[in-house]
Design a protein around this nucleic acid. Structure first.
Lengths: 218, 218
DNA sequence: CATCGAATAAAACGTTTGTTTAAAACGGTC
DNA sequence: GACCGTTTTAAACAAACGTTTTATTCGATG
């Protein structure tokens, strides 16, 4: 929204973050060496340790830079929903998904870098980001569970937790791997746009979240 | 079903496979060194290269040993459903999930080793197993898409592909991370047994698969 | 007993990794 | 222009990695 355009950052620190983000998303945290990052960023090998202290700290900085705002945005939207009074399940799912899509749309190039980075964080198969995730997600989890229970009276807290987990997994997986659909489907499925993917996800997840609800008519 | 019990395999090759499977599942393919594997298996460092040729070949062997049977079982179940005539969506979801749970139940100790290994394969963020997955999953995908379309007339092939992806993601994610629920929920969610998790998953995913269906009553 | 192939053992190989060090270059301030 | 902290550079570090090589041990066969 500001007039500042963020193309080709001039200072080394941000260039390192950008390059590291792209390479981490594409190849994983372990597969990317500091030499690959610093070379690509046009910086010296020692730059990472100079600015961040260690590779692990760089990973945390890369992750925190985008995951934190996404989770903050989610909670903002949930706040808006609550005070607005509208509480249909669709909007809950959207509150979970859209901040991710918006953050990705802010990306410069058209690759799916942020999806993959976000997915790598949510899945957190890497134990280094696991700590960060464990520190950051509980609040989001609590808020979503709360509103799911409020919107679906027949859903217990335990079930809400599980369904939130299903939702997170479905989103992370499909965003990360949506470009592999062509191969997995042997060409029988056309690669969906993100608008289509979003809408399909909302329909699927909203139905899942409300499963068993309103048996006796709406 | 056979009388052969597979405790403490005597030959080095299988001991390597067992140890590698456990360590890979727990820490990831990159994080586990050949030295860790061979030491834990009581074998020499060169044993892996002697029996498998390379670490990459070991990974493929570990993965193939369990993932192939799981996918074969899935298709078997689908065959049974088709000729049996029953085609409710619940059984489709079960055909997708149960082979994974059964394979895990065959495991020796109570950890969630197989879930994590399976999840690491389905997610396939590791590019080495990506090839294996890409070779093995298209048939399963095609069969599930086919039966989803047959069971839900209003669901297009494209949508079926996406919903299958959501299902895969939800399953892989929740099985992999179900033991982190206690932390993520700050103790507000009790750790579900696999029977509970399975049933919750079936309900959630069946609802998602049939979303938009039977609008005009069953 | 000698012999042969399979299996194990120990050691070294060349890379690559993250990190550290020490010197050089830069850019304002007095 | 000298001085300063900040930044960049080049070089070296120790450690860990996958892999290869060379010997040695083992068990059965002739």
């Amino acid at each position: 929204m500001s007039a500042i355009v963020n193309e080709a950052p001039t200072d080394t620190r941000e260039r390192l973050l950008d390059v590291a983000e792209r390479l981490f998303a594409e190849h994983g945290f372990d597969a990317v060496s500091l030499r690959a990052i610093t070379t690509d960023a046009g910086a010296n090998l020692a730059a990472v340790n100079y600015y961040f202290g260690s590779k692990e700290a760089l990973i945390e900085a890369v992750v925190a830079r985008h995951v934190e705002p996404v989770n903050r945005k989610r909670i903002e939207i949930l706040d808006g929903i609550r005070q607005g009074g509208q509480c249909d399940v669709r909007s809950i799912v959207i509150a979970f998904i859209d901040p991710v899509l918006e953050a990705a749309a802010r990306g410069i190039d058209g690759d799916n870098r942020f999806f993959k980075l976000m997915s790598r964080c949510m899945a957190a198969r890497d134990e280094r980001v696991s700590r960060l995730v464990m520190r950051q997600f509980p609040e989001v989890v609590a808020r979503f569970v709360e509103i799911i229970c409020a919107s679906c009276p027949s859903v217990s807290s335990n079930t809400a937790h599980l369904r939130l987990m299903f939702m997170a997994g479905a989103m992370a997986h499909s965003l990360f791997h949506h470009d592999k659909l062509a191969i997995l489907s042997q060409g029988r499925c056309e690669l969906p746009s993100f608008e289509v993917l979003r809408e399909e996800m909302v329909i699927f997840l909203a139905a899942g979240l409300t499963a068993g609800e309103m048996e006796a008519g709406k």
